[in-house]
């Protein structure tokens, strides 16, 4: 157990370090944030050079990288160019919004996909099954930027029962969360159906029936139980995806989470802020994956944490 934890900790560190380094170079090799920002504002060459010198952007990229890594190691992620404030508190302030959005989307996913997957597999090749499979294929292939606006048109504009965007009321989370849940919902419905069908054909299910258990019990204790194991892993991965990949949905619905913060930071050439946001997301994903592994080991007796 201790070895498992130590190994995962080192691995987590390596992943976050790699993500941080990659984003640093990707951002800094793409251009110079100070020139971008100040030339738009109509500053002269001398003014720009002065600010670049003052903020250390005239140093070679390797020196800046070393500086960034050492400061970040001490928890200092620099100041936002746009806001002039420390970046970390800015990011952390947005994080709960992203978590709520991802959490609600995951909840919707689970509440819809699990019953649908079980239903489809219980009546394979029935009309119900085929409908569910078709809808799932559709849900998996329609892009988010199509789903979002359609939902807005229906529920906000046409029916006027849900807010269009923002985060003013509790109800604001519904549309973005539903939009975000489309893909994982479809994916998990299909996965659960396939995994249920596989388990249904297994000998322990036939043996359970031969022992005289009711169909309800067989489905609940023998089929669903085992069929949910692979689903769990994918749920964890999808939650990680939702934490990091909500940029489009947060933009479409003007949801003030990390996704829209990152987008704004990139548009404003606010490299330090974008950098901090990416690192926080990476840490969140690593933590979620770790928790998934722990939960998996808890529910599947065949897996040991080692």
């Amino acid at each position: 157990m201790a070895r498992f934890l130590a190994r995962r900790l080192i691995l987590a560190f390596v992943v976050v370090f790699a993500v941080a380094s990659l984003t640093f170079f990707a951002l800094n090799l793409s251009g110079d944030p100070i020139s971008n920002a100040l030339s738009d504002a109509g500053a002269s060459e001398e003014q720009i050079a002065a600010v670049r010198h003052q903020m250390g952007y005239d140093r070679p990229i390797i020196v800046r990288y070393a500086d960034f890594i050492f400061s970040a190691g001490r928890g200092d992620f620099g100041r936002s160019i746009f806001y002039g404030e420390e970046t970390l508190p800015l990011v952390v302030a947005r994080f709960p919004y992203t978590m709520i959005l991802a959490g609600v989307a995951m909840l919707i996913t689970v509440l819809v996909a699990i019953p649908l997957g079980i239903l489809a597999a219980t009546f394979p090749d029935s009309l119900l099954d085929r409908t569910i499979v078709t809808l799932a294929a559709l849900g998996q292939s329609v892009p988010i930027f199509v789903v979002g606006p359609i939902l807005i048109l229906i529920f906000s504009v046409h029916l006027a029962i849900l807010p269009v965007s923002g985060a003013e009321s509790l109800w604001s989370v519904v549309l973005p969360a539903v939009t975000l849940s489309f893909y994982p919902m479809a994916r998990i419905t299909r996965l659960l159906r396939a995994s249920m069908l596989e388990v249904t054909g297994s000998e322990y299910v036939l043996t359970a029936r031969a022992r005289g258990f009711s169909e309800f019990r067989v489905v609940l204790r023998y089929i669903s139980n085992n069929a949910l194991l692979p689903v769990l892993t994918v749920l964890g991965l999808q939650l990680g995806n939702l934490l990091g990949g909500a940029v489009i949905v947060e933009t479409v619905f003007a949801w003030p989470g990390i996704g829209s913060l990152t987008r704004d930071a990139l548009i404003n050439s606010d490299f330090p802020l974008a950098q901090a946001a990416v690192i926080v997301i990476a840490i969140a994903v690593v933590v979620v994956n770790f928790l998934t592994d722990v939960v998996y080991a808890l529910v599947d007796p065949r897996i040991r944490l080692s």
Binding site: S202, E203, A208, R221, N225, N226, L229, V299, P301, R302
Partner: peptide, 10 residues
């Protein structure tokens, strides 16, 4: 036949 797969693994 197969006691390997005839018991519920969980």
């Amino acid at each position: 036949q197969d006691p390997m797969t005839a018991l519920n693994p969980v």
